[in-house]
């Protein structure tokens, strides 16, 4: 699992590559924490190269959801692969987090809010 962290204004971007499961979730957790500690309001998760996500992987985002929302922020996922997207839809994550097709729409979405 590879994690690339980027900063765009008040948005923390995480580009995930590979499989996000219980063991790699710890690293993603650290990366998110780092963004929030830096005072980032929103998070964009680029899942273009994310092949698989387990329930523990989703748990990381769920855990930070409230903290981000309390800060009037949002967590947006972009460019998710079909298999990951179907997992998100099944769990109803799409109803509480923003899921868009590409990074640009994610940014637009976040800036609008």
């Amino acid at each position: 699992m590879k994690i690339k962290s980027e900063n765009i204004e008040n948005i923390g971007v995480l580009r995930l590559e590979g499989e996000l499961d219980a063991s790699t979730a710890i690293d993603v957790d650290k990366a998110i924490k780092l963004h929030l500690e830096k005072g980032k309001k929103h998070l964009i998760i680029d899942g273009a190269k994310l092949d698989y996500i387990s329930s523990a992987g989703i748990g990381v985002f769920v855990a930070y959801l409230e903290a981000v929302q309390e800060n009037n922020g949002k967590i947006a996922f972009c460019a998710l692969t079909p298999s990951v997207l179907s997992v998100f839809q099944m769990l109803g994550i799409d109803q509480i987090m923003t899921i868009v097709d590409d990074e640009q729409s994610a940014k637009t979405n976040l800036f609008e809010s």
Partner: peptide
Amino acid sequence: GHCPILFWDDAKQKLSELEGPGIGLGIT
């Protein structure tokens, strides 16, 4: 948030998913 129930309708000879909305417990 769970996988939909698979329902076999013997009269229609069709296997369908009993879908519906819903978010996993403890998420929101």
